[in-house]
């Protein structure tokens, strides 16, 4: 057992890093879908916007920690603006149901991806880790990239913050109340349009900032938007809609499967991801953290 752990330590750690990176993406997707009832298919494209922001500001050769923070700031502003805009354009379609809204966000995704291609070309770009986080450190006798440890730290802090915000703060209570009974929230004097815009903007902010965070690991390139969107959707399905906890554990699980699963069962690398999803859906149709009622609700209005 000890020997096994030692042999796979780096893989396990790496699964955690990858999972936490995916969490930043999936939690926004899950909140926007679970809470605001919009399946935002432009989430992957927004991640890519963040990745290209990191490429442009930090660069391939390497930048300071300041440049990295600047990239986060730029991506954050872009994310907030995109979220507000998306909330604005999807809202008039709310009565027509999920499909119309999802198609609209898909259209946005395609246009954004093409604009990025036009701006940055179709080349693969990488992003340097910020100064001080380059190179590798020893973890229990194994070499491990310092930046990925940083991602683990940031991811855990972020998960805690998102949890506190949604489950413990007043704003989070307003959001959950809005999910439960939108009219009633209006009747106590809250402009629910602002709540919608706020949740959307927060979710897309996490996506673009996730893109910056993931830049030094996954780089910036056409097609990455689809890849991360699919992983995000799998996590949302596995974790249960609108659940921060579900997104967290779903992301960690997918992280381990993508890394440890491939290490232990390399022949099944391509199959593991969707195999896991199918298995979980069979055992727990509403997802890891979902209750049947919660997932049934959004579906019934479409």
């Amino acid at each position: 057992m000890i020997a096994w752990l030692d042999a796979n330590l780096v893989s396990i750690l790496n699964g955690v890093a990858f999972g936490l990176l995916l969490f930043t993406l999936a939690v926004g997707l899950s909140l926007i879908f679970g809470m605001m009832d919009v399946l935002n298919l432009s989430h992957g494209a927004l991640y890519l916007v963040g990745a290209y922001a990191a490429y442009r500001v930090v660069g391939e050769a390497g930048g300071s920690l300041g440049a990295f923070l600047l990239a986060l700031g730029v991506a954050g502003v872009l994310g907030l603006a995109a979220g507000a805009l998306l909330a604005g354009i999807t809202q008039p379609l709310a009565r027509r149901g999920h499909l119309h809204q999802a198609l609209l966000t898909l259209g946005v995704a395609l246009v954004v991806a093409d604009l990025l291609s036009a701006l940055f070309g179709d080349e693969v770009h990488s992003v340097a880790a910020p100064a001080g986080l380059r190179g590798s450190v020893r973890v229990l006798g194994h070499g491990y990239p310092a930046y990925r440890l940083f991602v683990i730290g940031v991811g855990l802090v972020l998960a805690a913050l998102v949890y506190l915000l949604v489950e413990r703060s007043r704003a989070g209570a307003v959001i959950r109340a809005t999910v439960a009974d939108r009219d009633m929230v209006q009747a106590i004097g809250v402009d629910t349009r602002k709540v919608l815009v706020g949740v959307f903007a927060f979710g897309t902010l996490l996506a673009t900032c996730g893109g910056v965070l993931g830049g030094p690991i996954l780089g910036a390139q056409p097609g990455l938007d689809d890849t991360v969107l699919i992983l995000g959707l799998v996590i949302v399905v596995i974790g249960g809609l609108g659940s921060v906890k579900g997104a967290f554990f779903g992301a960690l699980l997918i992280g381990q499967i993508q890394v440890l699963g491939v290490t232990l069962l390399p022949e099944y690398a391509s199959f593991l991801l969707f195999g896991t999803m199918a298995l979980i859906l069979t055992l727990r149709p509403a997802g890891l953290a979902g209750t049947a009622a919660r997932t049934a609700a959004p579906g019934s209005s479409g």
Partner: peptide, 30 residues
């Protein structure tokens, strides 16, 4: 579909090999 090569790199490290020969291009090469 491979973004993260760490699992494979881990296997390489444990194999006792003394060098690596690979074939990748484009995104995967990076």
């Amino acid at each position: 579909e491979t973004q993260d090569f760490q699992p494979y790199l881990n296997a390489i490290q444990r194999s006792g090999a003394e060098a690596v020969y690979c074939f990748y291009a484009g995104a995967e090469a990076v």
